[in-house]
């Protein structure tokens, strides 16, 4: 791919990452594909503005970037949201709130980690009270890199997430449900006795959709 002259540098990397996104989902039935298609057209976003990413979230809804044309619109409460955008670093204290918000969302639900702080700690890599890898505590579906990413990058992330939903790939919420003990163990390691109450996730143990 690097020998092609239609892309260079990070563009080629981006294409390699997105190469699988355009493939047709052969494993889904007609009805499932229809449902998946309608789901990806309508994403209600719960913006969890922790760090500087909150500033990049707001322009998305304005006339200039207009995320509504992709069916992306803000949701008032976690109960109505489909996508949780974690925009920036998470302190240990905010992680607890993120977990509670995430567990209140109705399935299917997705998480976008925005910026390098949410991916590997970023500039807070050696901080004592910052979460380094959000993916260890709640399942992340899509990463948007940058410090901070532009709103266009975030729209790219949403578009990639929509492709993923359209193809019916198992979302992070299924991973969370299957590996709930692992996630809870990780959460307990940083939060200690300060864990969120059981009733927000105990239905995961009941099996199936409660």
């Amino acid at each position: 791919m690097y020998h092609n002259n239609h892309c260079e540098g990070f563009q080629c990397e981006q294409r390699m990452l997105e190469a699988s996104l355009g493939e047709e989902g052969g494993e889904l039935g007609v009805l499932d594909r229809l449902v998946a298609w309608m789901r990806q057209r309508s994403l209600f976003v719960l913006a969890y503005g922790t760090g500087c990413g909150a500033i990049e979230m707001r322009p998305l809804m304005t006339s200039r970037f207009d995320a509504e044309r992709f069916g992306i619109i803000g949701a008032a409460t976690p109960r109505q949201a489909d996508v949780l955008v974690i925009s920036g670093y998470l302190a240990v204290k905010t992680l607890k709130r993120v977990i509670r918000s995430y567990e209140q969302m109705q399935e299917p639900k997705y998480v976008i980690a925005l910026g390098s702080c949410a991916i590997n700690g970023g500039m807070y890599w050696d901080s004592y009270n910052t979460i380094k890898q959000v993916d260890h505590y709640i399942p992340v579906d899509m990463y948007v890199t940058g410090c901070m990413p532009r709103p266009e990058a975030l729209i790219e992330g949403f578009a990639a997430l929509q492709e993923k939903i359209k193809r019916g790939e198992p979302g992070g919420f299924q991973r969370y449900r299957e590996n709930i003990d692992w996630y809870k163990g990780n959460q307990r390691r940083v939060l200690g006795d300060n864990m969120p109450p059981d009733y927000t996730y105990d239905w995961y143990h009941a099996g199936g959709t409660a």
Binding site: M38, R41, S42, E68, R69
Partner: peptide, 29 residues
């Protein structure tokens, strides 16, 4: 309203998609 605010806005089917998505979501609470 999108055109009044000088943006493209969602497709005319958007409310149908939103509604179908909500009807197909889980309800745990």
């Amino acid at each position: 309203s999108a055109r009044v605010q000088r943006r493209w806005g969602p497709s005319i089917w958007q409310n149908f998609f939103d509604n179908m998505k909500f009807l197909l979501k889980s309800e745990t609470l």
